[in-house]
Simulated assay, not measured.
Amino acid sequence: MKWRCKVCGYIHEGDRPPLECPLCGVGPDEFEQVDEPAPKAITAKRWKCVVCDYIHTGDNPPDVCPLCGVGPDKFVLLEDVQRATLTAETISDTTEGTIRSALDKVSYGLYILTSHKGDAINGQCINTAFQLTDQPLRLAVSLNKSNLTHEYVIDSGVFAISILSADDVEMVRRFGYKSGRVVDKFDGVEYVVGKTGSPILKESLAFLECEILRDKIVDVGTHTLFVADVINGRVLRDVSCLTYEYYRSCKNK
């Protein structure tokens, strides 16, 4: 609660007014409670790209997805977040928006996946990377077929994952919003070439290097699922990793 001194205007925060105003010296009887405004309701709509999962906030979907370039017809309106009681009706009365809103609650990290084609290097932001088995160490990643990095992984059969920290939001913007066909994403970014020949971001939290299993490549529609053996890796900094939920909360700041 907030309390205002009626004599000098000093504001005190606490469950009760102070015994003495630190500015003018009057007692608690000279303080009045200040009404705090109710939080404003969030009315902005959230639209999700069904191709790359980009989230757009606004009254209408964007004309062009900044990640994959599709038009507004590929965006679906997410359901407003609200508490609902689980009943037979709420189970049956669903839409694509309610389903995708639920999928947004699946925990994701954000990573920079890099690869090479000969001497050329490229990288992109991904959120689909997860461990499959412990013996052998094996993970899976999903890449959009239209992305340049997808082409490089198919050609070289290898990739590296730079795991980002919570203060690496700018790396998501650099590697996730434009294609490597039109910009050099590594311009001004420090990196080290790994054992696979793939670049690893020097300021990453941790890294992994992988070799794909060509007999386990899966076509999943717009994307390809790559299963890969982990052949190298190390933690570089002991800090919190960047999550997709945290990125969405601050991407417009």
Score class of each variant (00 low, 15 high):
residue 190 E to S: 10
residue 225 L to R: 03
residue 122 N to A: 15
residue 147 N to Y: 08
residue 37 P to E: 13
residue 97 G to Y: 08
residue 187 D to T: 00
residue 209 E to M: 08
residue 154 I to A: 00
residue 57 T to F: 10
residue 176 G to R: 05
residue 215 D to Q: 10
residue 103 L to N: 04
residue 7 V to D: 13
residue 4 R to N: 11
residue 15 D to G: 11
residue 190 E to H: 04
residue 27 G to M: 03
residue 198 S to D: 10
residue 136 P to I: 06
residue 78 L to A: 12
residue 116 H to L: 04
residue 67 L to G: 15
residue 243 T to R: 03
residue 176 G to A: 05
residue 119 D to I: 01
residue 194 G to R: 05
residue 110 L to Y: 07
residue 76 V to T: 14
residue 120 A to V: 11
residue 149 T to R: 02
residue 37 P to S: 11
residue 111 Y to H: 15
residue 56 H to G: 06
residue 20 E to C: 10
residue 85 T to N: 02
residue 69 G to R: 10
residue 186 F to W: 01
residue 216 K to G: 02
residue 39 P to S: 03
residue 111 Y to M: 10
residue 55 I to D: 05
residue 37 P to R: 10
residue 212 I to P: 02
residue 54 Y to C: 04
residue 19 L to K: 07
residue 208 L to P: 03
residue 50 V to Q: 15
residue 176 G to H: 06
residue 119 D to N: 14
residue 203 E to V: 11
residue 250 C to N: 14
residue 195 K to W: 00
residue 218 V to W: 07
residue 228 A to T: 01
residue 210 C to H: 05
residue 184 D to A: 05
residue 211 E to C: 12
residue 245 E to F: 09
residue 12 H to G: 05
residue 245 E to M: 12
residue 31 F to I: 04
residue 221 G to C: 09
residue 11 I to D: 07
residue 216 K to E: 15
residue 233 G to S: 09
residue 120 A to Y: 11
residue 169 V to T: 15
residue 54 Y to T: 08
residue 180 G to Y: 04
residue 162 S to E: 03
residue 142 S to T: 13
residue 125 C to M: 15
residue 210 C to N: 09
residue 65 C to P: 07
residue 73 D to C: 08
residue 236 L to C: 06
residue 130 F to R: 12
residue 146 S to Q: 06
residue 205 L to C: 12
residue 135 Q to P: 00
residue 241 C to T: 03
residue 140 A to G: 13
residue 249 S to C: 05
residue 202 K to Q: 14
residue 11 I to T: 10
residue 164 L to Y: 02
residue 30 E to N: 12
residue 80 D to S: 13
residue 148 L to V: 01
residue 196 T to S: 04
residue 97 G to T: 10
residue 192 V to H: 01
residue 129 A to S: 14
residue 232 N to C: 03
residue 115 S to K: 03
residue 224 T to R: 00
